[in-house]
Design a protein around this nucleic acid. Structure first.
Lengths: 191, 191
DNA sequence: TCACTAATTAGATTATAATCTAATTAGATA
DNA sequence: TATCTAATTAGATTATAATCTAATTAGTGA
């Protein structure tokens, strides 16, 4: 990730009004006038700030009749907020690079012959391999309800809730308004 | 965490020069003139930016003879970078709140009578209880070398490396320049 | 105490940024 | 097409911020 993009993100987000907008939208989408009302500012001012937030891709909009609702894009918010922590640390990713033999062994050890998951590895590297294996059956770009994810996981392991959370914590999926989506940048850490 | 503090953090970090300083210090401490040289700016300008970065507590200094070395405080960098993700989400922490009975049961199940750890729970909530239990023997405010942490863990479990990493990933400890320290805000999640 | 080195503060300049009012545009619907 | 509503753009004003040179301070060591 290039430095300028990170700077732009923080510069944009480093403003009281814009942080307040982000905080408001965490509770769900709102239209411009509503935001202006809640913050005691005029619609043009809100428009100005929304444009800035759109530039860094942390909000998107959807029109309903005359009214445009602004939504928080939590996916990029997470990605960008954590980018500063990764500066200069790209090399350390090597620790998690995995070859086919390694992956094969882990899959053999942690999955039974009927395909069910025997246990979740404690070692981070192995856990990532297992999670990545599990997640492969999900479709890129599709959004899933929580229940759909649970039903997908159940055949592998009864503790679907833990695994669903691991998907998110491991960066494989992102959650937004209770909907889940595969993180396209995620079939990567490994390999 | 109050909004103003988050705004201040991002405003400060949203500047090319200051991000460059952070990037430089990730590779280790440097003195003012060195930073000025590397960035092609004058010492007063660097002084100005360092003051800003000190305000948000992401750098600290240590004097050696005539020269002051500036160090990156990765601990607060992580804490503050992720604060924006937690806005309005304090309620969700409840999921991890634990009562004494619950804790007692988990400790009974996962630790043998001689105090050694039998296995690492897969469920996040239980894992946190176990990690918190393990970490209690460490001193607040003290910095440990990696070897010291390993030696501390060994009597509980042979796979000290995994557990040491879990300490960091679970937010119980922070690592800086190969030194480890208990995270004061961490005996918290639980309870 | 005096001289040296590195860091900081003062003061000025220039560039950015936030906000407002007024005017304009984009879409929806009768 | 005419009209309504909500959003955006234009233009002006005011407040902040980044950087420099020059002057000052803080700390070290002879």
């Amino acid at each position: 990730m290039q430095l300028d993009k990170i700077v732009h993100f923080h510069k944009t987000v480093g403003d009281k009004t814009r942080i307040q907008i982000i905080a408001l939208l965490k509770d769900g989408p709102l239209h411009g006038q509503a935001i202006a009302g809640k913050l005691g500012l005029t619609p043009p001012t809100i428009s100005y700030h929304l444009t800035k937030l759109k530039e860094i891709d942390v909000i998107f909009q959807r029109r309903d009749k005359n009214t445009i609702y602004f939504h928080l894009n939590e996916k990029t918010l997470v990605l960008m907020a954590e980018a500063i922590l990764r500066i200069g640390g790209e090399k350390e990713m090597d620790e998690f690079k995995v070859n086919d033999q390694e992956r094969y062994n882990v899959i053999q050890n942690f999955f039974a012959s009927d395909g069910t998951l025997i246990s979740i590895p404690a070692q981070r590297k192995k856990k990532l391999i297992v999670l990545e294996h599990l997640v492969r059956g999900l479709q890129k770009g599709k959004t899933y309800q929580e229940k759909e994810i649970n039903d997908y996981i159940k055949p592998f392991h009864e503790d679907f809730a833990t695994i669903r959370r691991e998907f998110v914590m491991g960066g494989f999926m992102t959650r937004q308004n209770g909907e889940y989506e595969l993180n396209p940048e995620s079939l990567w850490l490994i390999q």
